[in-house]
């Protein structure tokens, strides 16, 4: 299962990743795997301005980088304002990443704000066997119907808002959910190890390192996989 996700990777990465993946997610045949591309995984983040989606895309990339992967992370740069929908992207690959254009058919989608599900077509272009992780208290089955996703596509949920508030990240009105969302994503996707993610979080967040770490770990343990 793990080897299908990272066919070009061997040794320590795969083994430690496997040990971290009690609910590891298998990608199936839709990954862009070829002699040329290697195995490149593309992730799209949906957040709202001020929530930290761009930072989250950077943290995820750096976690992959710490595992020796080639990575890139970039935002879709629109007219930025607090509260407006924001999109950011991460690529993780076992080869040099030469593609310098946007991501239109992601392997994974991460939705950081539950209200975005109704505002934006968050699953647009999601690969047939892709996975969407949503920060929500909603039940995965009803979310699946709401998103209109079908077939092999998978849904994972996490109450990242609740976890962030519990660990006093941001305010109750505007919690900082990115560390929680990424903790959940690490487990749901198996893309990066929890340890790498935690190192990256601690390197990238300016304050509350321990609280962010605890939130990521709690979310890693409590993500709900459909």
């Amino acid at each position: 299962m793990v080897l299908r996700l990272w066919p070009g990777v061997s040794g320590i990465f795969t083994e430690t990743m496997a040990s971290n993946m009690p609910v590891a997610y298998s990608k199936g045949g839709s990954t862009m795997e070829s002699e040329i591309l290697g195995s490149m995984i593309e992730v799209r983040f949906h957040g709202r301005g001020g929530q930290g989606a761009v930072v989250a895309s950077n943290i995820l990339a750096e976690a992959g980088f710490l595992e020796g992967k080639e990575v890139s992370a970039f935002p879709f740069f629109g007219v930025e304002r607090r509260g407006a929908p924001v999109t950011a992207y991460t690529r993780v690959s076992d080869r040099k990443i030469r593609i310098k254009s946007g991501i239109y058919a992601p392997d994974f989608v991460i939705v950081m704000d539950p209200t975005l599900v109704k505002a934006v077509n968050v699953v647009e272009g999601l690969k047939p066997e892709g996975l969407v992780l949503v920060n929500t208290k909603e039940n995965a089955d009803s979310l699946r119907r709401g998103l209109g996703i079908t077939g092999e596509q998978k849904v994972a949920t996490i109450d990242a808002t609740g976890i962030a508030i519990k660990h006093r990240l941001g305010s109750k009105a505007a919690p900082i959910v990115n560390s929680s969302v990424l903790g959940a994503f690490a487990r749901a996707s198996g893309l990066v190890k929890l340890e790498s993610l935690v190192s990256s979080i601690r390197h990238n967040v300016p304050v509350k390192l321990d609280e962010n770490t605890a939130a990521a770990k709690e979310a890693f343990e409590s993500v709900v996989m459909q």
């Binding site: 990575v71 992370a73 970039f74 935002p75 740069f77 310098k100 254009s101």
Partner: peptide
């Protein structure tokens, strides 16, 4: 953006 705001 393609380079200016992209982390590598």
């Amino acid at each position: 953006f393609i380079l200016s705001h992209t982390m590598e």
